[in-house]
């Protein structure tokens, strides 16, 4: 049975230390198994969040050898065991204890997003949508809220821009803005409240997404194009002013 060395960040608040632990590696093992082995054999008070062990609850987000990953979806056989495996908490959020961080800011941002406001039901009391209408937003609904994208985004991680909602919530807004039933125009708040312009599309959010959601290409860039059309396109602005009667403008242009 192979043995690996793990360096695990331990501490409370903003300060901590790396502790080295031996781990017995077995076939099919993932990093979360190793962390739980450390917890059971060497450090019973090691704080770590986990739940489903199947990459669907988004609880065990951490940084493995410096890369934001879900521990339960990171197989040991994809890591080099020649050097100690480094496990750290997500650096984009305030540290609480050991591998646990305070992600509550995310829930505060979420509260600011206006919920789906559907158009009236059809005469038979139903809503009808075609597959082609909802195909795009189905991808966004795969999000498990692991917040790895929020963690890796340099706007939050390095620059601490409070006005920026972050990739996860831009994807949530995209799923509402592109919804065929939604009636709200969300472009102004995207620009002014959720700070879409802060994103410089360096695509780290897409790189770390465990659900392989094309966050930038399919979510953020289409939103940027919509905002560009509404606020930064001089010809579109001219056309709108020449042709529109503000009283007749619907809340959302279909």
């Amino acid at each position: 049975m192979a043995e690996a060395q793990f360096k695990v960040f331990r501490g409370e608040g903003a300060k901590g230390e790396l502790f080295e632990f031996p781990v017995e590696v077995t076939e099919g093992m993932v990093v979360l198994d190793a962390v739980q082995q450390i917890q059971s054999r060497h450090a019973n008070d090691l704080a770590v969040r986990w739940n489903c062990r199947a990459g669907k609850c988004g609880s065990c987000s951490a940084e493995v050898n410096g890369k934001p990953r879900l521990m339960c979806m990171t197989r040991m056989d994809e890591l080099s065991l020649d050097v100690p495996v480094l496990i750290e908490p997500m650096r984009g959020f305030p540290h609480m204890k050991d591998l646990v961080t305070d992600v509550s800011r995310n829930y505060e941002i979420n509260k600011k997003i206006r919920p789906l406001t559907p158009k009236p039901r059809e005469t038979d009391g139903t809503y009808r949508m075609q597959q082609e209408d909802i195909e795009r937003i189905q991808e966004f609904h795969k999000c498990i809220e692991c917040f790895l994208c929020q963690n890796v985004c340099h706007v939050i991680r390095d620059h601490s821009v409070k006005e920026f909602a972050g990739p996860r919530f831009l994807i949530r807004i995209a799923s509402l803005a592109m919804h065929p039933l939604d009636t709200l125009n969300r472009l102004k708040e995207l620009k002014d409240v959720f700070g879409l312009g802060y994103c410089n599309i360096t695509k780290c959010c897409t790189e770390v997404c465990p659900e392989n959601i094309k966050i930038t290409d399919n979510g953020i860039i289409p939103l940027k194009e919509r905002v560009a059309g509404a606020f930064y396109d001089p010809l579109a602005w001219l056309w709108k002013n020449l042709t529109s009667n503000s009283k007749k403008i619907p809340e959302k242009n279909k």
Binding site: L18, H42, R91
Partner: peptide, 20 residues
């Protein structure tokens, strides 16, 4: 159990990373 180097958390200095 062996004690190792200390680090500040979070550490946001330029080009700082623990990627290997």
């Amino acid at each position: 159990m062996q004690r190792n180097i200390s680090i500040q958390h979070p550490n946001r200095s330029f080009l700082e990373t623990t990627r290997i």
